[in-house]
Design a protein around this nucleic acid. Sequence first.
DNA 1: TTGAAAGCGATACCAG
DNA 2: CTGGTATCGCTTTCAA
Lengths: 338, 338
Amino acid sequence: MESLPGGQSRIADVAAHAGVGVATVSRVLNGRGSVSPDTRARVLESIRVLDYSPSSVARNLSLRRTLVIGVVVPFFTSPSSVERVRGVVAALEGSPYDLALFDVESADRQRRAFDLLGRGDRADGLLVVSLVPPPEELARLGSLPCVLVDAPSIEVPNVVVDDVFGGELATRHLLDLGHRRIAFMGDKPADRFRFDSTRDRTKGYEQALEAVGLTPRPEWVREGTQNRHVARSIAEDLLTHGERPTAVFAASDIQALGVLEAARSLGIAVPGELSVVGFDDIEIASYANLTTVRQPLFDSGRIGAALLLQALAGEELLTRSRTLPLELVVRATTAPPG
Amino acid sequence: MESLPGGQSRIADVAAHAGVGVATVSRVLNGRGSVSPDTRARVLESIRVLDYSPSSVARNLSLRRTLVIGVVVPFFTSPSSVERVRGVVAALEGSPYDLALFDVESADRQRRAFDLLGRGDRADGLLVVSLVPPPEELARLGSLPCVLVDAPSIEVPNVVVDDVFGGELATRHLLDLGHRRIAFMGDKPADRFRFDSTRDRTKGYEQALEAVGLTPRPEWVREGTQNRHVARSIAEDLLTHGERPTAVFAASDIQALGVLEAARSLGIAVPGELSVVGFDDIEIASYANLTTVRQPLFDSGRIGAALLLQALAGEELLTRSRTLPLELVVRATTAPPG
DNA sequence: TTGAAAGCGATACCAG
DNA sequence: CTGGTATCGCTTTCAA
């Protein structure tokens, strides 16, 4: 017998042991075709005895599928991506699919990931998080099912939030409190293909201001990165040069924390002298008592993965684009202007 | 020609197109064996024309390897696991290996993951993070190369820190500042197989106290979970019942944040009336100005992955266990007792 | 209900 | 140098 310690047993071993053909073993394994109860029992017994379990690689080659879902994500960037991936993991639980993680910090890594995955035999489906794949990469994907999480698209199914609305939500909250000198801190125009949610949030900010007859002041619209320290130094500049705003709306919680740090270091009281609103509602936000616009990070991943599973199951996706709700969470960093 | 849109081209297509045998194509593909410059050029041209790229599944079956590394990690638990995974991702960059992520919140999920991976044909190697696989699961792994990150073992290569020393480091810092009433907040005895770093940190805490002739007081040694809110309520209890400690050493930054929250809500000044030390030095720690014991989270993943790659390359691992350094980072949450 | 045999798409040995 | 062919382990016709 080949199946002694060291050598995994193969389907042929089981067949031999049970005195049947491999086809029969395959049938009981997959529940397809019919097998007499008697034979089935014998096969199952052999499987047990030989401690057999099928090779997924061989099965994949034969079935032409991999049973893995590729997740492409700028992993390092932010806590919010991680939270989204968590949602994906949760959705995949119970499905037969494994998750292969592709981090794509650089445009180069991104190209490589799409190269690899595009071939369609590393993964059966693709989940792209917070990234807008350029058309040519999308094209290379061929018929590989793909869903975008936190990135819009007219061709590819996606799950998003209404960032314009989110920007309005935050800004209106500050306006309602009586603020009129409201600054905005967003990201730089996205590096290559990262999804640029900032632009829409800026638009929401501007619309809200204009709705009450205010004109956005360029010197109060700043661009940083999703990095607390960068945000902090930009905020320090913002708060010490020119007329000081009474409130800041930051395009992410991370940046909002940077603003809070800046205020702290400058001895500016929050929310007494300065109100701050963030975006995302990541875990730390509640620790910092940050007023913020909550978006369903975990759910975005969960729903994206569910859509992909649906597509993988051959179902037609009725909803090409799913928009998740936003919600203002008022905590302790906003108050009427001093 | 078969290679028109829709059908991927196979090695046989390339061979036919170039007028050579498949073996030759395989040779130029893998750089093994020798091929005349002329033939090589023709083959490469055909590859280009047909936009061919090899099927990794087929290759895997043939080579009997998957080119994926399985990472088993209690992903949801804490930011520190995430940071470790980041290190792994970084180390895998440039290697031919992909990363398959297996989250194992429940013991059930864990069993499933080891079942799947143990077969040895979902992954070529295993990285287990912050988990001590029970012996029987380890046994099932057979000859699958495996490295433990943040978990000790005498059988399996692993990368760890000296938690006892870490506990001492934190506690000695408080003692040096003049504190004598020092409390400790750790985790519950680990659920099933999660690695229990708390126990060692507690030991370090106790040793440091005893070294200066103090006896640890049971009512000042509390157990919570890696959850800020739980830690907070435990801390509130700790700080309002019985004699109040002048300092708290928490077994993780997350828990330290919970303690800070509790102090804040009780109107206890930090570090004026209460000093707090954490453990890990996760990103938020610097925001909160938390004094903490820094451990190389990212590097633990990076080094663990490097060890695994080494093993995968057939090199003998000289160091079975690699201990990473700890460092006290003094920030603003510790001061001499009021 | 069952078994033999033809793929799936590579790699690598063995001749030539 | 190069081509034919067995092999990897499973699924799935096609006959019996």
